[in-house]
Design a protein around this nucleic acid. Structure first.
Length: 723
DNA sequence: ATAGGGTTAG
């Protein structure tokens, strides 16, 4: 996680802090725990001000301030400190600073209140400046002060500044203080990559409270060791510490990442036992967990049983449906979940709640998966209006949405306009360029990312390697593959191997592709074999092709697409014996029939084709016309009689959807179709020709990959896994 | 009068 401030500012802050904490007075002069028993609780002003914070009625603060001035108590230290605090809490930092600057007397609590105001208002660097000024002034911090400074350091994500304060803590032996320990633990967790330091700080705490445990448990989750977090939660229970809603939600979120069903169910029953059955945040988390592990009706039950819902409840439901789209077994199920999620957005808006940045980013994901450009553009407008566009996650979701909806220009514009970038936003844009065949753009951006000091992860390298494979850059591909392993210590996963094999296959270097498969350190999966099959078919190496296809079948003996593809391969090679063997196997294995289903989204409305269609007469006329013209250009459509029971040779639904798109949209809009199964070669050839005939860009996302057709060519380079 | 924790996202 990068700091929001320029590094020069941070370096200066670090050295100032170092200078001020270096020559500190001997321990006896420092009083870390301030005796506050001389506080005068009888002051009406202080208790009124306290009420302001408690009830969020911040408009009252200036009124009370005026009263303080009138009643002449404006030099009462307790009253004025309280005022600094209240102004800070309500976001009126100028007012807080003004009050502070006009005081003739200040104590450490006054200083701490001002600092805490700056932290609350996202100006951690100011908080640290005030801390330095306080030290220069000759005041000494208390454990509360150190806590605030450490929170400021966490917000800066600058571990070295935090370490200066940590040094101070060690010097005065304050590391066993609970609140300081909690803040230290939080610092190392938020700076990323310092889980061990966070653990050390945690175990040094004298008396760990439930906040200490929550901090370390979520630190585990934030730093990629969720399993350790579950272990620590159990340890806390053994120590007899009663969980509260905070740690329950933290642990449930770990269960989500780990897909720890058993543990999650236990946490659920524990929550009920200790009285959190109707606690909203806990219920939201449990509901989200149920959605993530696919226990749909359980989640629904919880949702329906809620008397009051919050925006988080809706967000969890929407996000749950959005991620169901990713794991759905086919595009049809995904589509239904997406429509459901869009319906939920409507219901949440009708209930009077306002979508927040979580809602917007989830909905953008839904739009990406539905390839619903117009809906996505509406969300874009909403993000501009509400100011949520400045959020990195919303920005990244927007880049992904435009990319998946076929607009690389708008995706790249959204990326350029982002105020800050993360590993994920870089990766999204690199992947987008790669998917659109703009390999050099992708590689240049990867270079920019490294220059910006952001560390690529394995997903980034999938983008980089696929850019190389699309452009046939074997040498570059190999060197990035080595860079990933040696320089970044990333162990290649199936997707990386897939890119490398795709690279050889596209160039027709089948032997090398097979060699690479043999050298892989993991067992090749269906994805790898289907790449080999596609390559062999394209380059006419039938023997290797059948070998790979039979392998594919072994791995997934129930997959109707594999059977259909293999059958088509044997039929077109005239190997009737093999064809009937496959047909028999399909019957014996009771292989399901392929469901051919396409849809297209035009102006926020979704039309479906299976393969009958709306506006049939007009579509039929145009389709007939296009078929005739494409026959002249060499397109061959072989119809096989129905009784052959082959699903591969009919007019598939995407033909109708594409023609419907041609009739109902204008150039230069991209025609975007989603399809429930893989495209077959015939339809693939046909749409290539249509893109040339009509000079339109056509996108089809099938069950395996994205095809972008323009000028008679497809982005998959005909190496998509086709039936 | 000042502190420390959580849910939903890419």
């Amino acid at each position: 996680m990068a700091s929001p401030l320029p590094s020069a500012v941070l370096t200066k802050l670090e050295s100032d802090l170092k200078r001020r904490t270096a020559n500190f007075p001997p321990l006896e002069k420092v009083n870390p725990i301030l005796n506050t028993s001389d506080f005068d609780p009888s002051s009406t002003h202080v208790s009124l001000l306290q009420k302001c914070v408690q009830t969020n009625s911040f408009q009252q603060a200036p009124v009370i301030h005026a009263h303080i001035v009138k009643s002449g108590t404006q030099q009462d230290l307790f009253v004025m400190t309280s005022l600094v605090n209240v102004y800070g809490k309500c976001g009126a930092m100028e007012a807080a600073r003004k009050v502070f600057d006009h005081l003739s007397k200040r104590n450490v609590v006054t200083w701490t209140s001002l600092m805490s105001g700056y932290v609350h208002n996202s100006h951690p660097e100011e908080a640290i400046q005030v801390f330095i000024q306080m030290l220069e002034h000759g005041s000494y911090p208390t454990n509360y002060t150190i806590g605030v400074v450490l929170t400021a350091c966490s917000a800066l994500c600058h571990v070295n500044i935090g370490k200066q304060v940590h040094g101070y803590v060690l010097k005065y032996g304050l590391e066993d203080d609970t609140s300081i320990g909690n803040s230290l633990c939080n610092l190392y967790s938020k700076c990323g990559g310092y889980l061990e330091s966070a653990m050390k700080a945690f175990w040094r705490i004298g008396e760990r409270n439930v906040i200490s445990w929550t901090t370390i448990v979520s630190a585990c989750g934030d730093n990629g060791d969720s399993a350790a977090g579950l272990g620590l939660f159990s340890a806390m229970l053994e120590e007899g510490i009663e969980p509260n809603e905070f740690i329950l939600t933290s642990v449930l979120s770990l269960c989500c990442t780990l897909q720890a069903i058993e543990f999650g169910l236990q946490v659920h029953s524990l929550s009920i036992k200790i009285g959190y059955a109707s606690n909203l945040p806990v219920t939201n988390s449990i509901m989200y967990l149920y959605l993530k592990i696919g226990l749909f009706s359980e989640a629904r039950k919880l949702f329906d049983g809620l008397e009051k819902v919050s925006i988080v409840t809706w967000n969890a439901m929407i996000a749950g449906h959005a991620q169901m789209m990713d794991v759905a077994e086919n595009n049809l199920v995904a589509f239904r979940n997406g429509v459901e999620a869009l319906g939920m957005l409507l219901r949440l808006q009708r209930s009077g709640l306002k979508p927040d940045l979580f809602t917007l980013s989830s909905i953008l994901t839904v739009c990406s998966n539905l390839v619903a450009l117009e809906q996505g553009e509406q969300v874009h407008a909403q993000a501009i209006k509400t100011g949520f566009l400045s959020d990195v996650v919303v920005g990244t979701a927007l880049v992904n949405m435009y990319n998946k909806c076929g607009s690389i220009k708008k995706a790249s514009k959204a990326f350029v306009e982002m105020p800050s970038r993360t590993l994920i936003s870089w990766t999204s844009m690199i992947t987008a360029f790669a998917q659109h065949g703009l390999s050099q753009h992708a590689l240049d951006l990867f270079n920019d990312m490294r220059l910006a000091g952001d560390r690529p992860n394995k997903v980034t390298f999938v983008g980089v390697l696929s850019a190389c494979s699309h452009a046939g850059m074997v040498d570059e591909g190999l060197s990035y593959f080595e860079m990933m392993k040696n320089e970044y210590k990333i162990i290649p996963v199936m997707d990386h191997y897939g890119c490398m094999i795709d690279m050889y296959v596209r160039l027709g270097r089948l032997e090398e592709a097979f060699d690479f498969v043999k050298k892989m350190e993991v067992e090749p999966n269906e994805f790898i074999w289907s790449l080999l099959v596609a390559g062999c078919r394209s380059h006419g190496n039938l023997e290797l092709g059948f070998y790979a296809a039979e392998h594919l079948l072994c791995l997934n003996p129930k997959d109707p697409e594999t059977y259909t593809m293999l059958l088509n391969m044997y039929v077109s090679a005239g190997r009737w014996k093999d064809a009937s063997r496959v047909r028999k196997a399909m019957k014996d294995e009771k292989v399901m029939k392929l469901k051919d289903w396409s849809w297209i989204s035009i102006k926020s409305k979704v039309y479906s084709f299976k393969p009958d269609c709306p506006q049939f007469e007009e579509v039929d006329v145009l389709l007939g016309d296009l078929l005739e013209k494409s026959r002249d250009l060499g397109y061959e459509w072989k119809e096989i009689p129905e009784n052959e029971e082959i699903e591969g040779r009919v007019h598939h639904s995407e033909k109708f959807a594409v023609v419907f798109g041609l009739l109902n949209t204008e150039k230069p809009a991209v025609i975007r179709v989603v399809k429930s199964m893989s495209m077959c070669r015939e339809c693939h050839d046909f749409i290539k020709i249509v893109s040339a005939l009509t000079k339109r860009e056509i996108m089809v996302r099938d069950s395996k990959r994205l095809h972008r057709f323009s000028d008679g060519k497809c982005s998959c380079g005909d190496f998509g896994s086709l039936l």
